[in-house]
């Protein structure tokens, strides 16, 4: 029984560590409301339906990356026949989604997946695209 203090100290330390994210969230007053993305401009459509992009955008980005860098294939033909230039900054962001802070980061920060290593090399356009210039 002389280990009682140690055991309980260890247990409470464990509990404190396990529940740390909860306390941190409470302290930071984070909310559970999801990110608000800019509304889609009229006539603007993405390379794939929103639901597909939501779950598989990372796979598409990877595949675009490998197509362009490794296979020198610089365009992508969507299901509806539209041909897109494969380019993260010039196509994805500049033409459609705007600065990564407003688009990528809002969801990634909310989902707690912030460690995406795109931006140490790729640049983000400074401002949202002008709706008139949309594809």
């Amino acid at each position: 029984m002389r280990d009682r203090v140690l055991i309980f100290a260890g247990l409470s330390l464990f509990l404190a560590l396990v529940t740390y994210p909860v306390w941190q969230g409470l302290a930071a007053r984070s909310s559970t409301a999801g990110p608000v993305l800019p509304a889609t401009a009229a006539g603007q459509k993405c390379v794939a339906p929103r639901d597909v992009m939501r779950v598989a955008h990372m796979e598409m980005l990877m595949s675009w990356r490998d197509l362009k860098v490794r296979e020198n294939q610089r365009t992508y033909t969507a299901a509806d026949g539209t041909v897109y230039t494969i380019d993260l900054t010039a196509t994805c962001l500049t033409q459609c989604h705007g600065p990564k802070e407003k688009f990528c980061d809002s969801c990634h920060a909310y989902a707690g997946v912030p460690a995406v290593n795109c931006w140490s090399c790729h640049t983000s356009p400074p401002a949202a695209p002008n709706p008139g210039e949309l594809r």
Partner: peptide
């Protein structure tokens, strides 16, 4: 080292590189 602080101006059409990778001429692919 991180190359970005040593770029006088960034050509937005071409990605920069990050610290820790090797780079060289790509014959302007």
């Amino acid at each position: 080292v991180d190359p970005r602080p040593h770029l006088r101006q960034v050509n937005p059409e071409v990605p920069t590189r990050s610290a820790g990778v090797v780079e060289k001429c790509d014959f302007c692919t």
